[in-house]
């Protein structure tokens, strides 16, 4: 597991932690049930204060990415497969609605839009 903390960005450190952890969970680098370092050991490793990591973990827990059990530490949450699906679908919907909006204002037909989407989808 790698976490890169930059002090040169306006993004708060706890957000840098949460976004990188989320990405690792979503791309499968971290799998359900995988242990993640304790707050205090992560704080030590990346040289930030405990309270900062604590906030990041609280956010991750709130969003359902990790679970913390007393005495056993934190793990990647079990329900996150469906959850990620949901997250991704939400993201897709957002982008598509933007695309639809653009198509409508540009006078591009639905068929043309579907054609374009199919092209992008099958390209890779």
């Amino acid at each position: 597991m790698e976490i890169i903390i930059s002090s040169n960005t306006s993004k708060p450190i706890y957000e840098q932690i949460t976004s990188q952890m989320k990405a690792m969970i979503m791309n499968g680098e971290l799998r359900t049930g995988d242990p993640i370092p304790s707050m205090r050991s992560l704080a030590k490793s990346i040289h930030v204060s405990v309270i900062t990591v604590q906030k990041a973990y609280e956010d991750l827990q709130r969003d359902g990415f990790i679970e913390t059990t007393v005495g056993r530490g934190s793990f990647v949450a079990a329900r996150n497969r469906d959850f990620i699906q949901e997250e991704l679908q939400k993201k897709l919907e957002e982008h598509l609605s933007l695309a639809a909006e653009a198509a409508r204002t540009g006078g591009i037909s639905l068929d043309k839009a579907i054609e374009l989407l199919t092209l992008f989808y099958t390209e890779e």
């Binding site: 304790s38 205090r40 050991s41 704080a43 030590k44 040289h47 405990v50």
Partner: peptide, 12 residues
């Protein structure tokens, strides 16, 4: 020294 402090604080 800061590393030592963070190590120390690993114990809650």
């Amino acid at each position: 020294i800061l590393s030592v402090f963070l190590e120390f604080i690993e114990d809650e």
